[in-house]
Design a protein around this nucleic acid. Sequence first.
DNA 1: GTCTATATTGTGATAGAC
DNA 2: GTCTATCACAATATAGAC
Lengths: 202, 202
Amino acid sequence: MVLSTETEQKIVTSAEKLFYQKGKAGTSMQDIADDAGINRTLLNYYFRSKDQLFEAVFRKAMGRFVPGLASVMQSDMRFSAYLPHMVETIIDTMIEHPQIPIFVLQELSSNPNRMPQIMREMGIDPRVGFSKFEEEQVSGIFGRMDVRQFFINVLSLCIFPFAARSVITELLYNGDGEAYIDAMKQRKKLLPALIMNSLTEK
Amino acid sequence: MVLSTETEQKIVTSAEKLFYQKGKAGTSMQDIADDAGINRTLLNYYFRSKDQLFEAVFRKAMGRFVPGLASVMQSDMRFSAYLPHMVETIIDTMIEHPQIPIFVLQELSSNPNRMPQIMREMGIDPRVGFSKFEEEQVSGIFGRMDVRQFFINVLSLCIFPFAARSVITELLYNGDGEAYIDAMKQRKKLLPALIMNSLTEK
DNA sequence: GTCTATATTGTGATAGAC
DNA sequence: GTCTATCACAATATAGAC
C-alpha cells in the first residue's frame, strides 16, 4: 500500500494509534478524523469504508513483524546463532510496537478463520520455519523436546510480556514503566541462554 | 454477585460469551438479548447500563483465575511442589476459559489505570506472591535468575499459548484443534521440568 | 481534494402499559 | 418481570457544492 498524500498518511497514523488502543469497534471514524485534525468525510474519500481502513491498518500491523521473522527463519544461520537473532528481532519489534500483540491477537481471536488466508497472503509456509529445527533435531540438539512446543515457548517468552504489559508493570515493578522497559531489554540476552539451557536434559 | 433469577443468568451467560469474543464495544445490548433469547430492555432492568453489565462480566472473568492463583501462592508448599501446582492451576483454568486471557489483557491494555484498583479490590499484595520465591532465593535455588523475570517466564509459558490459539493452531498444527488442545495438556508436565531446568546454570 | 448537508441505520436508555 | 413505544444521540456513508 502506497501512501500518496499527506492527508492519507495522517489518517493511517491516527487510525493505527486508535485501533491499536481501542480496537476496531471501540474507535469511530470521527475519533480518527479528530486525532488526525481533518474532516471526517475524508476517511471515506481515501478508504471508502471503515472496514477497508481497518484492513489497511491490520495488514500493516502484520507486516511489521512477519517479514522480520521470516527473514530470520529463511536465513541459513545455524541454530546457535539463529536463536539469539530471532529473540532479538522479536523483542526489538515488540519494544517499538508494544500494542501490536494484543491488537493482532484480539482480531485473530474474534475472527480465527482469517488465519489461513493471511498465511497464504503473506507467503508463510509453516514448513519453512521448521526445516532448520528439524535438521538439527536429527543431529540431536533438541533432545526429547518437541519442536512445536519449543517454538511455542520461544514465542511465549518473547511476546507475552508485552501483551501483559500493564499487569506486569503494576504487579512486578510497582507501576514503574521504565523499570519494565529495562527488564524487557534484559530479556534479549537472558532468553537465549535460558532457552538453550532448557533444551539440555537435567 | 448473586444471580437470582433465571433471566439474569441467561443474560450473564450470553454477555460473557459475546464480550469474550467481540469485546465490549464490539457487542451491542441487542446482540446479547438475541443470544439470550430475551427482550432487550431486560438487560437494562437487571443491570441498568451496558457499563455495569460489562463490569459484572469483567470481574467474573478476573475472579475465575485470580483466586486459584492466589490460593496456590498463599499455600505453604515448598518451591519444588509449588511450581507444578501453579502451572497446572493456570493451564487448567486456561483450557476451561481459553478466551479470558485476550479479553482481560485487551481491557487492561485499553484501560491500564484500572490495574492498581483491581489489585486492591482483589486483595492482591504483590509482595505475598514473592515471599516464597525470595526465601528460596536466599537458599540458592534461583542462582542468578531474577525473581521477577522468572515470574514473567512462568506466566508467559502458561498463558500466551492460549492468547495465540488461532495462530498456533494454524501455524503449527495445520488447523487441527484437537492436536492443539493435546499439546496444551502436555505442557502441564512439560513446563515444570523445563522451568526448573532453566534455573540451573549451564 | 475538501467541505457542508443529509440520509439511514443502530445504539443505549427510559417511561409506562400489562 | 416483561413487554411496546419512544427518546436522544452517535454511527457510517454518500451526494453535491466549491
